[in-house]
Each structure stands twice: as C-alpha cells, then as structure tokens.
Design a protein around this nucleic acid. Sequence first.
DNA 1: TAGTTCTGTGTATTACTTACACAGAAGAGC
DNA 2: GCTCTTCTGTGTAAGTAATACACAGAACTA
Lengths: 269, 269
Amino acid sequence: MADEDDEDDEGGAGGGTGLPASLEMAWGLRERPGKGPRPTLTLPRIVETAVALAAGEGMDAVSMGRVAKELGVSTMSLYRYVTAKEELYILMSDAGVGAPPALPPEAAGWGWRELLTRWAYAQRAVLMANSWILRIPITGAPVSPNQLAWMERGLAAMADAPLTEGEKISTIILIGGLVRNEATMAADMMDAIVKSGVSPDQVMGQYVRTLRLMTGPDTHPGVTRLLESDAFTGSDEPDFQFRFGLDRILDGLAALVEGRQAVQDGAEA
Amino acid sequence: MADEDDEDDEGGAGGGTGLPASLEMAWGLRERPGKGPRPTLTLPRIVETAVALAAGEGMDAVSMGRVAKELGVSTMSLYRYVTAKEELYILMSDAGVGAPPALPPEAAGWGWRELLTRWAYAQRAVLMANSWILRIPITGAPVSPNQLAWMERGLAAMADAPLTEGEKISTIILIGGLVRNEATMAADMMDAIVKSGVSPDQVMGQYVRTLRLMTGPDTHPGVTRLLESDAFTGSDEPDFQFRFGLDRILDGLAALVEGRQAVQDGAEA
DNA sequence: TAGTTCTGTGTATTACTTACACAGAAGAGC
DNA sequence: GCTCTTCTGTGTAAGTAATACACAGAACTA
C-alpha cells in the first residue's frame, strides 16, 4: 500500500508535474540522463523540423513518418522524444506562437484598453503569419511556456484594472477566442482561394450566389437582407469583423470598469 | 469553347448551386433519379446512424467502416450517398444542431438584447447536449439548412436594431464564436474528468498545482495572482465565464446602439 | 426486349500511428 | 579495465482508416 506506485506516467526524474516528459523538457526541468548513448536528435530540432514542414506544406504534411524522414532518422526514433503525436502538436503550437513581443518603453503609460488591444492584434498577427497553428486541434488548458507567457501578458494588461481575477481570466479567454476564431475564418478563406484558384471576391461571390438559391425573403428574411447588402461583397476593410468584435468587447469591459470606478469614487468621497 | 463543361463536380441534375450532391439533397433539391435499382439506404438514415454513433461512443468511433457496419452494409456503399467523409461531417453537424426552437408568443415584445441572449443560450444548450458536434473540425462558411436557420434566427433578433448588415453578421459570428468556444472548453473539461475518473475540482486542482510549479511571482506575477485567487477553485457559478463574455459583448453592443439612437433622436428633433 | 442508368460490393492501394523487441553506445561502479 | 545498467535508434508488424476502381445485377425507359 505504498503510495509511490501511482506515478505511472512520468519517469520519476521530473518535478512531479504530471506533465509528459517532453513538456517538462520544454520548461527546462528534467536533465538529460547521463547514462545511455548520446542522442542524435534534440527535442527542439524535431519541433523545428515539424514546424518548417507545417509552414511549408501545411499541417496535412506533418506525420511522424514524414518528420522523421526530413530528419533522416527512422519513424520510431521520434517516440524516444515524444510519447504521442499530440505531444508534438503541443510543442509545435508553442513554438509557433513564440514569446509575446517585447513592449516598447512608452507602454508604461498605456491603460488596460490600449494594452489589451495590442495584445489581441499581436496574437492575431502571429496566428495569421503561421496559420498552420490554427489547424492543430487543441484540447485542454494551456501548459506550455509560450502559451503561458501570452496569458501572463494578457493578465498584465489588466493588472491595475478594477476587476476580479475571475473576470480577468474570462476576458483573456474571451478575447483569445475572438482572435482565434477570426484568424481561423481568415485562414479558411485563404484555403478556399488557393484551392479554387480564383480571387477572394469570386469566392465570396460564389458563396453569396449559393445562399441566394437556398434562401428567400419568406423563409430567410434576415439572410436575404444580408445578401442584398454589401456586407460580403464590399471589401472596404479586411479586418472589419475582427475590429468590430474587439471594440464591442472592450466597450463592454469599459462600461464595467467605469461602473466600478464610479462606485469606488463614491465610497471615497 | 462551350462554357457548360466546367460543371465537373455536380451531376448536373441539381440546381447548379456548386454544392455537393448530398447537400443539395439535404436542401430538398435534386429528385431521386428514377432509373437504377431502389436504394437500400437513405441519406437521413445514414446521418442518423452516424449521429447515434457519435452520441454514444464519441466522434472517434465514427468511421465510414463503422457507420456502414452499423447499417449492415459495406463500407463503400456509403460513397453512393456521400462523396467524402467531410460531407458526412457537415450533414451530421447540421442534424446535431437541429432547427432552432420555436419562439414563444411573448417573444414579440422582446428587444434585441433579450433575443440575442436567448439565442446564445439556446445554441449553447444544444452544443452541450450534443458535444460530439464540437469535435467535428468545421471549415468553411455554413451552407446547410439548420446552420442557416440558426443564422437567420440570430439576424432576426437584430432586425429592428440600428445596425448595418455588416455589423449584424459580425455580431452573430462574434456571439456564435463565444458559444462554441465556451462549449468546447466545457467539453474538454468533461473529457478530462471522464478520462481521469476524478472530480471536476480535482482536475482543476491538478491544473493549478501544475501551473504553480512552472510559474512564480517573478516570471508570471499575473498568473500567480490568478492561481492564488479562487478563480479556478471557487466553483460558485459553473457558467460564469460564458455569462461574463456574453454580458460584455451585449454591453458593448448596447453602447453602440444607444449612440446610434441618440444621433437619430437628435436629428429628428 | 434491349439499353441505360444506378446500386451495392469486393478488392486493393496508400498512408498513418504506435507496440515491441533487439543491437549496440555511453557512462557508473568496482 | 571490466561489468552492469541504462538509454538510443531501428526494423518489423499490427491495426485502422479513406477511398479509387471495376463488376454484377436491379429497375426503369423506349
């Protein structure tokens, strides 16, 4: 009945985080064991190769066999560094988002709104520049270094705001979700353009034409009005949708913050 | 140089929508051709079977072979009804969300905010009751009947609001994204609970414990504050996060609407 | 009755993840 | 230096999955 036999997952050398060995490696815990033969590969090199493959040929090209071939090793050797493909995905995702960019000195004077806005745009830029990240099915809460660094940066933006911790993390999740959703839609659009080989306007036009055939003023008055408008065709601003969503969220948050400050001011007076 | 030879996808019997045959079928276009032998299966029966499988054993159990076995036919016979697995996914998704629920009579007196709130909650309820839907990788814009019905319902909620069509559809996408994100997180949580076999609090506790090991006040002050708070452990309200996000969005939208109405009132005076 | 068209199916191809066992390398302890 | 332990890379193989292709036969049309 010794209670040390339920550590059936980790090798025991790690910090007992419950994380897979490769992730403890990514955090810098877990030394290389000094025993066996020198490894040919390193985890960063594997991840780097997989990322290059994803960036170049898309996520579909990333298979264990293909990554191994790219590295000049056998497929199974990768499993010495990673226990499952999903783990490689997490590491790729972490490498793909990278560390959040450094803040300029003048950021010290910025308020939560400016900071959150820049946070959102920076994240969006990263996702759109590495849109293969969006094709990785993420499941579970973030546990990798860079993902947490981004979370920290988002929380820091609201450090001085009169919000509870629950509200802060909810805001981070809310805006993070928006960023991801919008970037994914943009990537889908891109894929459709590349696959069909026609212009963005033509893709949209085809979609509108299709919807017109299935809908009508009787069954779908709202959709019909939408299709008659220039909401789809008029491509005035490419990121209108993103901007609109972010502005609504931040306006709503501002209302909450101002309400809190009014209460606080009233109590102080 | 005849221009009728670029219809290489659809069989020609359909309405020329550019949609795959199975989807035209779902829309009620495209009659059954009277020639060959009577089909053993029907598209709805295939979808129904696949949905039952997904609901019972999860999305991982849904393969073409398995669905066929469940129906007592050969794998390849399914390809007479669906050209690719992705198409079955779309049909499953459409069947899973179903038609939006009927509005009660008193809904006539509701404003856009109440209507949008109920729309969001109704959608969330459907996704959480059929969380396998969240495991289907969706790509591309909605083209199936029920998906469009939900979109229509959302647009209808804002029919009288002083918003442009572009703003309306952006709002639908914004809230729809929130609903999906939050439902997906809840489903991930559920999976973690089922897989580990422990209580929700224990899963959260393990996550917090893990994060504590990787973070510290120096490198992650915001995260540290978060972990010290009861944001994760205090499970006062299970849907706090969802409610919070929705309220922020609707508050932000309200600010926009009120601004518009003020301008309008000023012009009328 | 002949011809056309459509159905279900068997077979086979290709690709992918991963379990398992083995040969050999590198350090640890004596 | 020798032995033992531990760790590495690898080959093989099992299991699963999507789907291209061609064929036999059904049901309708002319």
